[in-house]
């Protein structure tokens, strides 16, 4: 090796060294010490070893199951709709016939740069009983006579959160699909067109298969982030009404910081969520592979 390479090498170690050190201090150490937490009941100053006690307790905890159920509901309803929208938008925005493509792309991606808390608060204001949406529906369009209880009805509250998530994250996923579409050669479409394939057939048999790795990536990523959903329900509905929008992440937060603090129990729940995510991701990867 010549001198320059050696120097670059050393330089490289300097660069990653800092991030490795901070990764060890802020990620590896906390993860390892959380293993100890899981098997103890840590209430305030006192810590007692309980073995699998936390998991037994969790099994009987109805609030845990209902909040896990809520998280899954958001996952099952929101993620497919969002990914479908994202693909359609990507295809439309990739079309050469569309004018001002950059402008539209920017517009749809823009929600992603807003902070989670501030857009949640805006949604809360928009959908409150005397908010803009109700006022528009009542006084502008005259289709309803009394305000829709967006935030105070259990089903409506879930719908508002799903709408918020769609607004915030569709553009984000669209960018991945748009990037994926750049790798699909124009010639394939031209060939298909000559063979007489319709636009829909082209979409189903060329675009979707070409985007499969990206669909897998966005699906896994959306699954992870939806199961960790916290900011939106916390700020829009505060988990209400009647706990109907409390997610598992919110419940973990409550057990750690709102109720009598029990970090052992909270850590046990976090591990359960982690394993669920792991299993779901494995399934998704398996399904995507089998299709090949």
């Amino acid at each position: 090796m010549n001198g320059v390479n050696e120097r670059t090498n050393r330089m490289g170690w300097w660069f990653i060294g800092l991030s490795i050190v901070s990764f060890a201090v802020f990620m590896i150490y906390p993860i390892l010490s959380s293993v100890k937490l899981v098997f103890s009941s840590l209430s305030g100053d006192s810590s007692t070893f309980v073995g699998f006690g936390n998991f037994v307790r969790l099994f009987h905890d109805t609030t845990f199951w209902s909040s896990l159920g809520n998280s899954f509901l958001f996952l099952v309803v929101e993620v497919p709709i969002m990914l479908l929208f994202a693909i359609i938008l990507a295809v439309v925005l990739n079309s050469k016939m569309l004018k001002l493509r950059g402008f539209w792309r920017l517009l749809i991606f823009l929600p992603c740069v807003t902070s989670l808390v501030s857009y949640s608060i805006l949604f809360k204001m928009l959908f409150s009983s005397d908010g803009l949406i109700n006022k528009f529906l009542m006084n502008g369009l005259h289709i309803i006579s009394s305000p829709i209880p967006w935030l105070t009805d259990p089903t409506m509250a879930k719908i508002v959160i799903i709408l918020a998530l769609l607004w915030r994250w569709t553009g984000y996923n669209m960018i991945f699909f748009l990037a994926g579409l750049q790798n699909v050669s124009e010639e394939i479409y031209e060939a298909a067109e000559i063979d007489g394939a319709s636009k829909i057939q082209q979409f189903l048999h060329i675009t979707l298969p070409a985007l499969r790795p990206i669909i897998l990536f966005t699906a896994v990523q959306s699954t992870i982030s939806t199961l960790q959903l916290f900011d939106e329900p916390m700020n829009i509905t505060n988990g209400g009404p009647a706990n109907s929008s409390t997610t598992i992440a919110m419940y973990i937060y409550n057990v750690s910081f709102k109720y009598v603090p029990n970090f052992g129990y909270a850590a046990a729940m976090s591990y359960v969520v982690m394993f669920i995510i792991l299993i779901l991701s494995l399934i998704q990867m398996k399904v995507a592979k089998n299709d090949d």
Binding site: T63, G240, P241, A242, N243, N254, K258, Y259, V260
Partner: peptide, 16 residues
């Protein structure tokens, strides 16, 4: 007592 937050959360899920 020490568990008022927990009780109030349970109440909000049942009183309606």
């Amino acid at each position: 007592g020490i568990h008022s937050s927990e009780v109030e959360n349970i109440l909000s899920g049942n009183l309606n």
